[in-house]
Design a protein around this nucleic acid. Structure first.
Lengths: 341, 341
DNA sequence: CTGTTAGCGCGTTCAA
DNA sequence: TTGAACGCGCTAACAG
């Protein structure tokens, strides 16, 4: 009621009513110009815009969202930010939705499915227009919450499994198999594996695809494996390859769980004087920009991370426009022939 | 076009009233158990919790925020996600605030101060508990909006300038000077610079600090510089160093705008057979984990990125508890003596 | 420990 | 092209 002299106190921020009063129009008219909706005469629009500037109005999306039963938020649940993969995805997503004035609400789970469940619940409380999660494997409650929410749900990175709603990604099993076939074609037969900590289900699928293809195509088993119980990192990859070669010096190729680990492997070889690819072939996964700038570019399986984010953003915009995007989008992958195999 | 997006909600999302009815208590009682606030008897808590599960209640934070005049959101405005620096910061921040049930609302500006202004306005509309931005240089309107919002404002990465509210970071001028002194102490005198695209104001401060210290301590000017008008990347660093050495082959040291660029420089030297540090010294900035896993670790100026995020998160939690954190926190930096100088 | 009252600021629905 | 009334779902401030 009291709004005669409003001090510069953010405690009482200007509301639409203040704008309307200053402009000499009704609240709803002010609301319409704020949102750029409905027919407004140029004259009243100008008055209202002046009033907005005069009172320093900042819309309250809490109220707006409550009144209209939904927000322009996109919940994003990511396993990690510690290598460039998910930041790349987030970047592509952000770029694709910026035009629709959608905002990303981000949570990080550290590859923990219980943390994912909590994050999904917390983000759903914001009545997001869409929720983006990584992978197709979730706790049953997580799936139920997502399905029951009515929001557009997009599951990223993987296409092997049944999505709750929409999925954009690639087949990690196929990617692992492609690495296997690449090495077999290059004449390698004593193939090892270096991996990182549990929780990364897609890395596990790649390894399974690798092993299955080795078996099927050449009746081979992995000739050695070293899996660190730690997040992937270049340092971890370096240490892990050193350990693996120690235990299995006869290996002629190593597949890594991702490029960070592979880069570490490459650095170990440089430092230890292991001839790559002469004595040992190295294959990574992701196709990081960095890995291609090496003196000897890394042979790797490149994924379109930014593009996955971008496509997810576009699908979600399509959905909001009432269109029906394809349920599953497989963006595939490329085997990049570098110099390490 | 609308800025309001309406998800396809199920006809009947359960509300607190549904929970209250199912539990046979009042709404406010149900609300208290949902929020874990206020004294509740074990018996009624159990009843309400059963009701929550039975009706599949998901709280509506839009309504909650409106009623309590504020959200548990932390707006985060980042210049970029394309190298690990800001993801590292975001990671630290997220980890520090997770315990307080705060969520990050993320916007990316591509180092554009106008985009920053728009992002700040958009995030403020969510009545965030705090707003985290990068750098101390903003458009005047941006500063005004932030100051007027009443939210806790934290400006990250830099401490040279007057913060709107709170700042956590380091002196980039001093970091640049430290690189200069390091090289001078190692006997270098023909020092060049490789930089990346405009917009990165802190990189500019580092360069200025480098040049000022060279002048002051040794009356030296830069013996060459190559600045790409592109975002920093390993590939860009590699190309830029090649170009710089072409134009100024007499250089005996190069300082890079950051580690990504410096890594590219190191890779160029490996590929081109440039003896590092014999003929040429290389110095980076950031102290990426990766740069330390190289066969010859990069000499660089390490910044505590994750820690900056963490401290920001803690300061903001302190503020929310009514404490008064220090206005400016300088986390400093370390010159890391690698093998490239 | 629990309930009542009274909005929060906005957008929808209808009417003019 | 503009406006009035109503309520979205929840919580602060008091009671009791």
């Amino acid at each position: 009621m009291s709004n005669e002299h409003r001090p510069h106190r953010p405690a009482s921020a200007a509301t639409l009513a203040d704008v309307a009063r200053a402009a000499g129009v009704s609240e709803i008219t002010a609301s319409r110009v704020v949102r750029g909706r409905g027919p407004i005469s140029a004259a009243t629009r100008a008055k209202v815009e002046a009033a907005i500037a005069a009172v320093g109005y900042v819309p309250n999306r809490l109220a707006g969202g409550l009144a209209s039963a939904g927000s322009n938020l996109v919940g994003v649940v990511l396993p990690s930010l510690s290598n460039s993969v998910f930041p790349d995805v987030l970047s592509g997503l952000n770029a694709a939705i910026a035009g629709e004035r959608l905002r990303t609400l981000v949570a990080v789970t550290d590859y923990d499915l219980d943390a994912e469940r909590d994050a999904v619940a917390a983000l759903l409380a914001w009545r997001p227009a869409a929720l983006v999660v990584v992978g197709l494997e979730h706790r049953p409650e997580t799936r139920e919450m997502m399905a029951a929410s009515g929001a557009t749900i997009i599951e990223l990175m993987d296409v092997e499994g049944e999505p709750v709603d929409l999925a954009v990604g690639l087949s990690h099993t196929a990617a692992g198999a492609a690495a296997a076939r690449r090495l077999l074609a290059r004449g390698r037969s004593r193939i090892g594996y270096v991996g990182h900590g549990a929780g990364d289900l897609r890395a596990a699928k790649r390894r399974a695809g690798l092993e299955a293809a080795l078996k099927r195509d050449a009746d081979l088993a992995l000739a050695g494996a070293h899996v660190l119980d730690a997040p992937s990192s270049v340092g971890a990859g370096r240490a892990a390859l050193a350990a693996l070669l120690d235990a299995a010096p006869e290996l002629d190729a190593v597949v890594f769980s991702n490029d960070d680990m592979a880069l570490g492997g490459a650095f170990h070889c440089m430092a230890a004087g292991v001839d790559v690819p002469g004595r040992l072939a190295l294959v990574g996964f992701n196709g990081l920009e960095l890995a291609n700038a090496l003196p000897k570019p890394l042979t790797t399986v490149r994924t379109a991370r930014g593009e996955i984010g971008r496509i997810a953003g576009e699908m979600l915009c399509a959905r909001l426009r009432g269109e029906t995007p394809p349920r599953v989008t497989d963006v595939g992958f490329d085997v990049v022939a570098g110099g390490t195999d």
